[in-house]
Design a binder for these strands. Structure first.
Length: 155
DNA sequence: GCCAACGTTGGC
DNA sequence: GCCAACGTTGGC
């Protein structure tokens, strides 16, 4: 049973292009408990994820990725030189987790937030729920397929 | 456990 | 840069 997700990233720090270049990447730096629970318990090998650019021009789903390693402790929480260092995370019971993802393919036409808001089939996406800021969130298979379909044609 | 103050996210 | 809508922290 495959699950579907959406991962937000700010392209100024890590873009979908960076993911393509890196091939396999640890999705590190998530510091929200709800998102942590999804990374630790929800995401399974083979699951698919939409990669979304936030705080970008335009804000849009850029491409697809696959989960290639399930949740394990995010090493950046123990690195004092890292922006996401968490001195309160116990090494024997790490607080923050990450998965590894691999880029699958770019959408030929990135699906902008504006377009998502206009698509009737996408009206229930968590992404466009008011105040919904989760950086790791579930999507339904129908929502996932609709985004991929929209991404094949210009707006 | 309540809740005010504070910090963060993220669209605009 | 603004600010709404959160989430977190910490005094009580």
């Amino acid at each position: 049973m495959m699950n579907y997700w959406l991962l937000k990233t700010e392209p100024s720090s890590f873009s979908f292009t960076d993911l393509v270049k890196a091939r396999v990447t640890g999705w590190s730096g998530v510091r929200n408990y709800q998102a942590r629970n999804i990374l630790r318990d929800g995401m399974k090998r083979g699951d698919r994820a939409l990669i979304y650019h936030s705080s970008a021009e335009p804000t849009a789903v850029m491409g697809e990725a696959e989960v290639v390693r399930e949740g394990y402790p995010d090493p950046t929480q123990f690195d004092p030189d890292d922006d996401h260092y968490d001195p309160d995370s116990p090494p024997d019971a790490p607080r923050w987790f990450q998965v590894d993802v691999c880029a699958l393919r770019a959408l030929p036409h990135p699906v902008t937030l504006e377009r998502i808001k206009r698509a009737p089939k996408l009206k229930d996406m968590l992404l466009i729920r008011r105040g919904m800021r989760l950086s790791v969130q579930p999507v339904t298979s129908a929502q996932y397929e609709e985004i991929v379909k929209l991404g094949k044609s210009p707006p």
